[in-house]
Design a protein around this nucleic acid. Structure first.
Lengths: 189, 189
DNA sequence: ACTACTATTAGTACCAGGTGATAATGGTAG
DNA sequence: CTACCATTATCACCTGGTACTAATAGTAGT
């Protein structure tokens, strides 16, 4: 016997996990057993076949929480009064946090607040020019962060000041003051 | 004839692009032609078969720049002197930017700077507690942002102040002052 | 030593979703 | 009427499997 069955199976699981693109044939030669043994192992471990695995990876990618990219707003917007106030919720997932301690990275909370502030401005172009932020409590994986943004002033020079406060439950975890540049619309033209 | 060949082919391309998981058979019934016609079309348009398309989507996902998540540092660190200074480079990709105008979202630049500041601190735990940032020039897709961070002070209370300046060429695009909390190591215990 | 049981291997039929090649049909334009 | 293109039909074959049946090897229990 090359390697006890149990050992082989757990190793098999690992091998497939970090390389889902491997065929049964390759696994068979790798573990120096027949292809049928590999199939039996997959059955017992309920590991799907190659094509199913690939499909899974692909679909996962498509409906990915392509979290801080691609989406216009980071988190789910649950309320929006243009030029006035907005609220979004973001659940902290493991990929948002440091793996060592499961504390959300600062720029995740910043991104939620910043994208909310930008979404609040009803203009073709809105760009953050300045921000002043404080992280008042660390946020852990699994917690849901509710960000509340409101416009404190629309200045004459085409800038708006927006305050954002984020909460977990009733605890404030983030405070930010954003200055956003907005391009025309009610102004020139 | 149902639809002219050319028209069908361009439409085919679109259909497959936004749903790579469709089989030739489904396409055939959809366009009301034979399966062979679909295959000929794919040949001419050099569109690979279903399984290849799925595999492509899946592999694309694996070497994804899972930009603001998962990576410890956003961008590529090219220099690091612990507790002193660090430099990282980030190329702005379309997914980092607003689709309307190809200008990088503010939180992308913030994330680069913030993660660099955190990486700079040689401690088990380092958390941003405060940040003060300015976006001095908008950054466009294709530009490479070089962030330079240096520690301005290690305070007695377990906090460090870090300044970050980001450049595109010799133009400053971002200025940030970060206050980072570091947990012990040289302190208590 | 005989049996029971488990692990492994082998072999067969079948499946999806194709490739590749060859050939037959159906307009349609010159 | 013919030449040409688009379309369709067949057929053999491929990969990477599933599902099932059966044979073989090794080991433990009694």
């Amino acid at each position: 016997m090359r390697v006890p069955k149990k050992e082989r199976q757990t190793e098999l699981q690992h091998t497939i996990e970090q390389n889902p693109f491997i065929t049964d044939e390759a696994l068979a030669t790798h573990f120096n057993v027949s292809i049928q043994t590999i199939r039996l192992d997959r059955m017992e471990m309920k590991i799907p076949e190659l094509r199913e695995r690939i499909k899974h990876v692909a679909t996962e990618r498509l409906d990915d929480v392509r979290t801080l990219t691609e989406n216009e707003v980071i988190g789910d917007m649950i309320d929006l009064k243009l030029d006035t106030s907005a609220i979004s919720i973001l659940e902290i997932l493991p990929e948002h946090a440091f793996s060592r301690n499961a504390i959300a990275r600062g720029h995740i909370l910043f991104a939620q607040a910043n994208s909310l502030a930008i979404a609040l401005i009803d203009d073709e172009l809105a760009l953050t020019t300045k921000a002043n932020v404080q992280f008042t409590r660390s946020v852990h994986v699994g917690e849901r962060v509710v960000a509340k943004a409101f416009v404190s002033s629309h200045r004459q020079d085409g800038r708006s000041d927006i305050n954002v406060e984020s909460f977990v439950g009733d605890e404030c975890v983030f405070i930010g003051e954003f200055t956003v540049y907005r391009s025309s619309k009610e102004e020139s033209r």
